[in-house]
Amino acid sequence: MRIIVPIKQVPETNTVKMDENTGTIIRDGVESIINPLDLYAIEIAIQLRQQHGGEVIAISMGPPKAVTALREAIAMGCDSAVLLSDKAFAGADTWATSYVLAKAIERMGSYDMVICGERATDGDTGQVGPGIASFLDLPVASYIGKVEQVDKKSCRLHRLVENGHEVLDVELPAVLTMVKEVADPRLPTLGGKQRAKKIDIPVWTANDIEADLDKLGLTGSPTRVVRIFRPKVVRQCEKITAMDDSIVDQAVDKLVVFLQKKDFI
């Protein structure tokens, strides 16, 4: 099994701050982590390698500092990593991001699977996995909650949909996107951390992946963010305190009236 895992470095969601004047996100001083959903992709990739042999390669498109996410992936047990970094990649939407990742994957030779997280917590689109598959002309199985069986040519997967699980047989190579249910991500080991410190992580630029410059970054992105703003909090909470036994009934009555007014009862 040769498995490629695209991971994204994202700001830790708890600490997102906005510049109220400019309406932009303040990224300075915000801690960066591996997109939490990508940890599941890394975990299942490592498990598959443990069962079937082969290698797991993590890749990320991002600024130079995204290398720390790749080192963490190595510490967890990935065999190697590649950073895709170039000023020309900046400002990419999911179209242009998928393009760069697909071009890089093409350059990596043959592989059996590309395993993504279901979505990134910052962009939160879930479009990059299917996007990579489309560029590579591969099948994509999204929302995978269980990998049941894998052999050289195909795998059997459970895909979580609105009211149940689809059981799918997927020809390889394929792109898969993972949801949380699939596995419990392991913690980095001491040995892994030491390897991660020393390992050489190559940086590929637009040139290295023979990318078409028109398709990169902001230039290559069909979409434009025209405004970022904070949602207005319009809710006025009617709050009743009923810590005391005697007023529980009263509080419940008020809630029932509230629900009746809104037609829920």
């Binding site: 997102v16 996100i25 069909p222 434009r224 963010v225 904070r230 949602p231």
Partner: peptide
Amino acid sequence: PAIGGNILATIKTP
């Protein structure tokens, strides 16, 4: 909504 619903973004495809 983006970033866990913290912000809203308006996007267009010119």
